[in-house]
Every structure is written in C-alpha cells, then in structure tokens.
Design a protein around this nucleic acid. Sequence first.
RNA 1: GCACCCAUAGCUCAGCUGGAUAGAGCAACGGUUUUCUAAACCGUCGGUCACAGGUUCGAAUCCUGUUGGGUGUACCA
Length: 591
Amino acid sequence: MTIDNIIIAGARNAVSELYDVRISEDQVTLQETRKEFEGQITIVSFAFTRFSKKSPEQTGAEIGEYLLQNTAQVTGFNVIKGFLNLSISDGYWIRTFKSEILKPEFGQFAANGKKIMVEYSSPNTNKPLHLGHIRNNLLGYSVSGILSAYGYDVFKVNLVNDRGIHICKSMLAWQKFGNGETPESSGLKGDHLAGKYYVLFDKEYKKQIEELRISGKTEEEAKRVAPIIVEAQTMLQKWEANDSEVINLWSKMNSWVYEGFDITYRKLGVDFDKYYYESNTYLLGKDIVNEGVEKGVFFRKDDGSVWIDLTNDGLDQKLVLRADGTSVYITQDLGTAQLKYDDFKMDESLYVVGNEQDYHFKVLFLILSKLEKEWAKGLHHLSYGMVDLPTGKMKSREGTVVDADDLIDEMVDTARQRTEELGKVDGLSEQERSSLYQMIGMGALKYFLLRVDPKKQLLFDPNESIDFQGNTGPFIQYTHARIKSVLAKAPHLLGLEITHTELTLSERELIILLGNYPKIIKVSANEYSPAQLANYIYELAKMYNKFYHEEPILKAAKEEERIFRLQLSSAVAAVLKKGMRLLGIDVPEKM
RNA sequence: GCACCCAUAGCUCAGCUGGAUAGAGCAACGGUUUUCUAAACCGUCGGUCACAGGUUCGAAUCCUGUUGGGUGUACCA
C-alpha cells in the first residue's frame, strides 16, 4: 500500500467517524506539500466542510488530529486555510527506500498480459529523413520502451512507403539525368542520392509547367500534361503491371535507400521487430470493402465507386474504392490494419503519425468499428505536432529541410568541441572519446525533441545551437556521471545495511521524488507522452545536484550517513539511467 | 465555409483528478571551487497565463464567444 492510499483510507475513516458520512476515494484530494510549509503530503479539505459544517481550518484540524491518533505514519500536522499538511515519519520514507526504490526492478511493472503494436517511422523511399522524421522515430521508440516498462508486450513495426507516384519521380529523374550514378560512384548515401533526383524531378517539372503556361495553357492544365509527370504516371502503371525494367530499377534504387536509412536508424538508436512494405500491402483492403458493402456499411454509387457516409458522426462522405476498382490510401490502411491484426493478434495498436493525419485516422478507426472489428477499439493514434523552422514549414521538394544526417553529425561535432573545451577527455581512448561525443550529442538532440509535449508543434532554429546546459540531455548525463564518480570511490558502502533514521530536508525530498517514478511511467504510458518522463528526470537530476552541494556524502561525519547517502545517490543514478534509456538516451559513466 | 490542435516571462518550455504567492532553462547581471566532477550550485531581473464573459468557496486548468497561429476537409500517400 502506498502512502497516498494509507492517507486516503485514513481520511475516509476520519470523515466517517467525525461527521458520520461515507465518502469515496476520489473525494479525497491529495497533493505534495508546498516547500514553504512543514510536511510532505497535503489533504485539500475545503470539500469536507460540507459534512463538518465547520470552517475549513477547523475541519482540517479535526481530521489532522484524527490521523495523528490513528495513522501510524503521520507524525504531525498543520493547517493553513483549507490545507491540511501532514508530516510523515522518516522511518516510513527510509523503509520505502529500502524495500522498493533500491530494488533493481524498481519502475518496471509486472507483465499485464497485453500485446501492443507500435507503428512508427514509416518513411518514403524517395528522399532522406529530416528533423520531422527524427521526432517521429524518437517518439515511437521511446513510447515503445515506456509501454514495455508499464508491463506491455510491445512490437515495433515500420510500414515503409515504397511505392507510388512520388517514388517514380525519383526513379524517372535518375533515369533521365543520372548517367548511371550510384552511391559508390558519387559517394552519396543512398537515400540522399534518391532525394537528389526527387528534387531534380521537381525542378524539371516546374520548368515544363512554366513553358506550357507561356505557350498559353492554364496552370492546372500545365500541371496535368507536362511530359515529365505523364512519364512518371506511365512508369507507375508499368510498375503495377510488373514491367521488369521498372521493377528492376525500383529494386535497385530502393536497396540504396534502405542502406541509407539503416545507417540513420543506427545513429538514432531505433529499431523494429518487423517491416511492412506498401508494395506488398497496397492491394489489400478490397476484401474489406466488399465485406462493408455486404454489411451495408458502405454504398456503391452509379459509377461503381464505393463510399461510406459518416455525416451522422460529424464527418463527411468518404471514398473507399475508386470507380475503376483501384485502392485509395484508406483502402490500403483498412487492409493493412487487418493484416497486422492477423499477424500479431494484439490487444492494442498505436500509430505514431503526424497531426496532419488526424482526420484520416479518425475515419479509419470509425470505419473499422462500424465494420464491427472487435479489435478496432484498441487502435490509437499518437498524433504529434510538426517541427517548424523560424521561416516556416520544412519542405523536401524545396530543400528547406533540416536533414537528419547533417543534424546528427553537427550535434556530435558540437559535443566533441564542448567536451574538449572543458578538458574532460583525459585518460580516454580514441574510441571511448568518439562514443562519448556520440552519446552526448545525441542525448542533447533527443532530449530537446522529447521534452516537449508531443501534440505541440515544436520550433527548431538552426541558427541557435541546441543547449548543453540547464534543462538538457547533457545536464542529466552529467549528473549520472557525477554520481558514478562518487560511487567508484567507496563501492564497499553500497552493500552495507542502512541504519540511518533521520532525514535532512533534501534527503527526504529525494526519496519522495524517487518514489514518484512508477507513477510517472504510468502517466507517460497512458498518455503516450515521453515528455512527462523527460521533465521528471530533469527534476530528479536538478534536485540531486542541489543535494550534492548541500550535503557531504563520503565526507559525512557518521558512517551511517555515508552509507545512506551513497546508496541514495546510487538509487538516483539508477533511475536516471533507466528513465533516460526509455527516452532512447544513454548515459556515460564519465564525462 | 466547416472540423481538429495550439496560445503561459524577451526566447524555448513545464504547470495532468480545478486548490496556497503561476515554475524551470536560455538570455542579462552578481556570487560560489585548498572540500566527493563548476556541463554544477546560489541570488537578482523578468508574467494582464491571447481577449471577454460564465460556472465555482476557489480557474492558467472546466464551459461559451472573440482574436491570432497551425493543420485538415483529394478518386495523392
């Protein structure tokens, strides 16, 4: 039983005994006592005045007195306005520290027997990854870790968008302008090579549109009849007809791109249990459409196209199959959803996709539940905001993107400079140094992106480098390294029994904050929000640094203090490390 | 037009069952190292929580409206 539950139970008994009213658990509001007052847990007792018919102060005092008499852990109280501040015995905090926080599995929930699939990344194979994709990948990876810590059995999958007109654009431009260029011959990473031709296509396309307009066509018509776009469409048709030449080109370019993606994924430290490819799934979904027509959920128009009417749900009519019988995006997604369920039989499924697709997923989930798919109620969309630049939106075609590989390299390079300036690399081998720079640079980048509420759009200014001080990844990494350095000086104290009985203010605060870790995991998991966890870890690191300055650890007067403070430090380091791992960030032993 | 998301310090962000005097970091200014790592710590400066109503003992938080920003509303994916 947690202390919160003990206090809630005590408060319910108090109200029942004193005022003869039975109240439910959620009628008792608890909060942490503000720093300026004595105590650790506060009961907000305004609501109880209804039952006591007395002033908030008097009501609080009566309940406080009751708890003091009847609840062993409560050692004192004070009432300020309607706030009943309770002091909990140091013995209780120390016992909690020893019996829970110090355990290696602290923060890992028992398996809940549920399977969840997390789909993230979902790149297009016509261009390299940019900063927006980094946010997606980090969110997906981190949420997967958090869900796993919360007790889920997690499957990470990547649905690769490897077909369609946009892929043909890169292919066509390469065919026309590439002169057989390869990653080897050009020294370009495969995904960057494909991206280069995607941009070239767009340039040529725009040029042709302009020429057609000068010759008197409307913009709309020009866009439709420009030779290069017509060629790309022809190529897509050939691809769908299994034309061997097109398929070979497609395989070749895709393999370059995958090699490039793998490098970026490795640098980001993300991975997947399974890949799905749209080239395999794009024909799926037609069975579901038929099923929907039979069930009367969908209807067919005169031209043969199939629709669903969602106007009663506040949405629009939506096309689910073209008149010529071919699939649209939502058809595919219906089919893919079924396929994924058939493969994994998961209880829940999370799609990590930008908020520009909110409407799409609303429709998708609604259709599946109308089709009476039992599993549809387990589908969720982790909708995150765009990453914007001060100049506005990033656009691949126009080259106004922050490239993922460039940014990563830059971060690692900055980490190297800072670390060398601080002279912290003495005694490290070349390899240790480079792995440290990698860890710190990526830590700064990942924390920067994950500390912000996923649903908010995020501003990135390329002219202002990401900080390494204050509320940052490196600050937390530093705190971890700092603790490790102290621990290394007296390892024998870690195994000794804690006999300490009285806590200083900062010791008590640290234990309470450490004790909140499981709650934070729960909230982060339920809300799919690594930001909650990130901000918690920062608070913990900050509080530890304060403690570190205030209290001597190895230089404490009494041995029992040295033992306790060292083990407290060790527990903080463990939670920092675990928490950061769930954000996909590693922490160094030294920095 | 309609729908969804967002608006808190100069900047970037916390603030989560409605609760006490709204918090951090950065930036600016000042201080702390013969003591366990100064990527740290302490202090000063900085707020009409977009605006206007409403609900409540109590609102940054809930409701309504307005303004501003973003996104969507494709037989693109």
